[in-house]
C-alpha cells in the first residue's frame, strides 16, 4: 500500500520544476528550432510546388511549340509540293507551246515550199508553152517551105500539138485522133 502511494504521491516541487523546464523548453524550441524548421519546410514546399507548376507550364509550352512546328512543317511540305506541281505544269505548258510552234513553223514552211513549187511549175509551163509555140511556128515554116495543102498542114499541126499534150498527160501514142 505504501509503495503504491509512492507511485501516485504528489510532489509540488517537481510540478514547479517541470513547469519551468517545460515552459523554457517550449519557448527555446519555438524560438530556435520550430520557427526556422517549419518556415524552411513550408518554403521548400512552396518552392517545390512552384517548380512543378513551372515544369507543367514549360511542358505545355513545349507541346505548343512542337505543335506549331509540326504545323509549319506540314505547311512547308504542302508549299513544296504545290511548287513542284506548278513547275511540272509550267514545264509541260512550255513544252506544248514549243511543240505547237514547231508544228506551225513546219506547216508554214511546207506551205511556202508548195507555193514555190506551184510557182515554178507555172513558170515552167509558161516557158514550155512559149517553147511549143516557137516550135509550132518553126514547124509551120517548115511546112510552108514544103508547100503542103492547108488541110494536111492543119492535121499535122494538130497531131503534133496533141502529141505534145498527151506527152505531158497520159502516155498515149501521138497519132490517135
Amino acid at each position: 500500500m505504501v509503495l503504491a502511494a509512492n507511485l501516485l504521491s504528489a510532489n509540488v516541487g517537481l510540478v514547479i520544476w517541470l513547469t519551468v523546464v517545460f515552459l523554457a523548453l517550449l519557448l527555446l524550441l519555438r524560438r530556435y528550432a520550430w520557427g526556422p524548421i517549419t518556415t524552411a519546410l513550408s518554403e521548400r514546399e512552396k518552392t517545390i510546388a512552384a517548380s512543378m507548376n513551372r515544369a507543367e507550364e514549360a511542358l505545355a509550352e513545349s507541346r505548343r511549340i512542337q505543335e506549331s512546328n509540326q504545323q509549319a512543317r506540314r505547311e512547308a511540305e504542302q508549299d513544296a509540293q504545290r511548287l513542284l506541281r506548278e513547275a511540272h505544269e509550267e514545264a509541260q505548258r512550255i513544252r506544248d507551246r514549243e511543240a505547237q510552234r514547231t508544228q506551225e513553223e513546219i506547216t508554214a514552211m511546207r506551205e511556202q515550199a508548195r507555193e514555190e513549187i506551184e510557182r515554178d511549175k507555172e513558170r515552167a509551163l509558161q516557158a514550155l508553152r512559149s517553147e511549143v509555140s516557137d516550135l509550132a511556128i518553126l514547124a509551120a515554116e517548115k511546112v510552108l517551105q514544103e508547100n503542103l495543102d492547108t488541110s494536111r498542114q492543119r492535121a499535122l499541126v494538130n497531131r503534133f500539138i496533141d502529141g505534145l499534150t498527151s506527152h505531158g498527160g497520159n502516155n498515149q501514142p501521138p497519132y490517135q485522133a
Binding site: V21, L29, I37
Partner: peptide, 16 residues
Amino acid sequence: SGILLAIFVQLANRYK
C-alpha cells in the same frame, strides 16, 4: 529537454 534542444537547434541551423 537537453537532447531535444541539442537535436533540434542543430537541425534548425541546417535548415538556416
